[in-house]
Design a protein around this nucleic acid. Structure first.
Lengths: 153, 153
DNA sequence: TTGAATTAGTTTCAGATGAAACTATTATAG
DNA sequence: CTATAATAGTTTCATCTGAAACTAATTCAA
């Protein structure tokens, strides 16, 4: 391969994108098949299961979703009886979001399945790689943030 | 953290998705700002720049895009004068796709910028991690393929 | 106070997406 | 040979998406 040429299949951003889409759509297939959940609905359920009482903005922050996506996912979860919204007493703009009993049932059913799936993925790596993987992702993420978009010189 | 609980920010599929979106949208911002290219249009240009004469199905295979997305991206590239389509003489269903001179100009301008960006990302990792990264992504990808979607027990 | 600015969240609008149906061409079975 | 199936690619349709505009509530400045 001549230097300065770009092979998509060796290009880190492309590799990450393919891998991430592969894993996400695998998982999304399972959400969707068993419970009719979209990936955004599941992400909202995942943070509400762990941190009940968050506002929509706090959910957005913890899920890296934008506020429009959160608003729509929450609306569907409420429609389908899986989440509940109250208005914060001290600031009536804020919502206070929680899973319903039905939502929690699904959360409790799905969580161990996803953790097991993750463990099975990690089993594919050697122990030393496995230990370093998260730090590596953190470093790449930090670098991406620091670099900002590529600029034409 | 109690075992069996799922923290989104430590969950591999979520981490990969956030990192990948961060990097992809950084890059897409640059394409789009300088040349009005979508990520799919750029991917098609990237493979045609390296492998001129591919058919749409071959482009789809090399970019992990579906055939509808390829069809639309190609249509736009042709509209904007950046790619050209001919019909394969021996099989008139097949298209033979190439960049135009203008398309190649953009390709030649963008390629080194993206390679430099990738190199800067990799600079964030230690040398040993950097060397192993691609193999690690390959292993995860292979594991994801092998595992298929998670199943409720 | 009160009215301008800010914040939380929703709706709108225009474009992107993918599954399925469709067109055109080529391959294959009888 | 036909006609049935398979393949390449496009179009349609219903849904998804994000930016910007919007509503409602709160804060801040004068």
């Amino acid at each position: 391969m001549k230097p300065g040429s770009l092979d998509l299949e060796d290009f880190l951003p492309y590799r990450l994108s393919v891998l991430s889409n592969m894993i996400s759509s695998s998982i999304a297939g399972a959400y969707s098949e068993y419970f009719g959940l979209s990936i955004n609905e599941w992400r909202v359920m995942a943070v509400l299961g762990r941190f009940p009482g968050l506002s929509a903005a706090e959910v957005a922050e913890r899920t890296a979703m934008d506020k429009v996506a959160v608003s729509r996912a929450v609306a569907r979860l409420i429609d389908s009886g899986r989440a509940r919204r109250e208005t914060a007493a001290e600031d009536r703009r804020r919502s206070v979001l929680e899973l319903t009993a039905e939502g929690r049932r699904i959360y409790d059913r799905l969580t161990p399945v996803l953790l097991r799936y993750e463990a099975e993925l990690l089993d594919a790596l050697g122990p030393s790689q496995r230990r370093r993987l998260m730090g590596l992702l953190t470093d790449l993420q930090e670098a991406a943030r620091r670099l900002g978009p590529p600029r034409l010189d």
